[in-house]
Amino acid sequence: MKPQFFDSSAPVTFLIGGTGAGKTELSLNLSAWKSSRFDQVSLVDFDIVNPFFRVRKLKEQIEKLGVKIIFPDRRVANGDIPGLPAAAWGAVENPEVTVVCDIGGGEPGLRPLGRMKELADQRDANVFFVINPFRPDFSTLDKIEENFYHMSNLSAMKADYIVANPNLSGETSKELFLEGMQTVREFSKKSGVKIAFAVADSVLASELKNSQVQVPEFFRWQDDLIFAIKRYWDIPWQFGDLSTY
């Protein structure tokens, strides 16, 4: 049976999951992809915990793609003071706006999401739980199961879909990707939560597709839907620019 894929036109998307699952990279790519299809796209940086590698560091790059970034007031934006951007509610409420919410910061970052729940339900939000089975907390079926339900409960949101993001950063081979997919598929089968799509960076995605991908793009590969992404945090010192750390 072919898997059922998600509705890519859903107006509001929440990305939840463990720290380092790849939510921020995915949110950047997903909002870039949506901005080529919808008029008003906003990316909400909900990372109230981790002060490094946040979406807001890439503000200029992202805004060039036509995506509006919403994050806390600039006076505290570089701080480690938890702050939720008030404008996020306005964006999620507005039927004209397509929204991607990057919920960073692992467990503590998920807690404030409950405040969003009513609004999210009103707009039929898609909640994606991103899983990288090469992270220590998600490396076995048992660990995935424990953390999936624990984190979903913390956020007060029910994950509609799983996003599989099996990777070891720059060391991701096709074999490794397939090995990771196997683990995520097992969990999907056990939990009954469908895999919406799998994430692959441009190098791996081109290998799978057998031709150069145009990131960001979705394509079908065997029984899966693959989302080919650009890696915004790609080992930056190789390019000599860590200023966006």
């Binding site: 380092g20 990288n132 090469f134 992270r135 220590p136 070891l168 060391e171």
Partner: peptide
């Protein structure tokens, strides 16, 4: 096997 970790972790 290799895992993906933050420096702090």
């Amino acid at each position: 096997a290799k895992v993906l970790m933050k420096g702090n972790e």
